[in-house]
Write a protein that binds this DNA or RNA. Structure first.
Lengths: 173, 173
DNA sequence: TTTAATAGTTAATTGGCGTTAACTATAAGC
DNA sequence: GCTTATAGTTAACGCCAATTAACTATTAAA
């Protein structure tokens, strides 16, 4: 088996394991916070795209526009999302996360990551550095892909970043 | 920053990137195949645990046993899952994937993984081997956690492995 | 300016997935 | 052997998120 094939196999197995662990805790977290899959998807979409509109959410989640509208409406009522008229084209509604929505997204991510802390305890300490470098290498590689795939679109992708609690606290909205 | 902190940071960043790439295509795939989150969860659970029982699925997905029973029943009717009496304890029903279920799991996984092939092209070849070993190390660590969490049961964890199309073809049932 | 297209909302309806309650069947304990 | 516990199923029901249809409002096109 070539090095590439071996890498492929190891990565796939790892991702499988990761999925199993993170999905589970993420689902639990969704239940605890009374969030549906669609709601989370919509929050992520709004978080990820600038000037996100209602129809976009429908397209992204694969649901009809009325469904998206109702979905957004619920999120607005929950004070997670802000919906305001676009002044250029008053048919559009611009969507953005409010503080509560941003906090939720972040907490959801933390929920997914819970098992990682446990994982670290089981990795021999002398291997940690090599593995870290491996991740960095893959991160670099994926950045190259991102740059390549977004060059011909004028829509800016907001690369999602974990905010510290302090940053969240200072964040007006 | 300690080695552990650095590892943590790199892993988190990597996971963010991975999530962004894989979640969307996976959701799309679920829609195309008329699968609900619970159904996928159940299939994964059955795939993962040997001698998987109905109640286990309920516990894992956070739903009641009757709900799990109905869920399994649907999957049986769809010919994705096999449900047979345990001869040691005839109250139990042993669950296992049928060919169709295994194929679905594999295809769903491929849907998530499409971008990985592209990723590999951007990783320097001389780093591949080290990264592969890193993954193997993490896989081992997670297996230890799995063993610990199922310590009072003698159930073996089936490490999920990608079957080739040939293997799937030859696979009876 | 009349018509058509686009963006979104509202309303009525549906269907899947969940719940509880009641039941069967098997196994374990006293 | 009688009782209790466990595993799962069936039935009746509820809820929520989706659908379609019909509508308003704004913009673009003829």
């Amino acid at each position: 088996m070539s090095k590439i094939e071996q890498f492929h196999l190891a990565l796939k197995e790892w991702i499988q394991i990761f999925m199993r662990h993170s999905m589970h805790s993420f689902t639990e977290w969704m239940g605890e916070n009374d969030l549906s899959r669609s709601q989370v998807g919509a929050l992520m979409m709004i978080n990820h795209r600038k000037n996100c509109q209602v129809t976009m959410i429908g397209e992204d989640l694969g649901i009809s526009t009325p469904a998206a509208s109702q979905l957004v409406d619920r999120l607005v009522q929950l004070d997670m999302v802000e919906r305001r008229e676009d002044k250029e084209d008053r048919r559009n509604k611009k969507l953005a996360l409010r503080k509560k929505g941003r906090q939720l997204i972040q907490e959801g991510f933390k929920a997914r990551m819970g098992w990682v802390d446990e994982l670290i305890e089981y990795i021999p300490e002398n291997e940690l550095e090599d593995i870290t470098n491996g991740f960095r290498s893959m991160i670099k590689a994926s950045e190259k892909i991102d740059k390549k795939s977004t060059k011909n679109s004028d829509e800016k992708i907001v690369v999602w970043k974990i905010q510290t609690d302090q940053e969240l606290e200072n964040d007006e909205s």
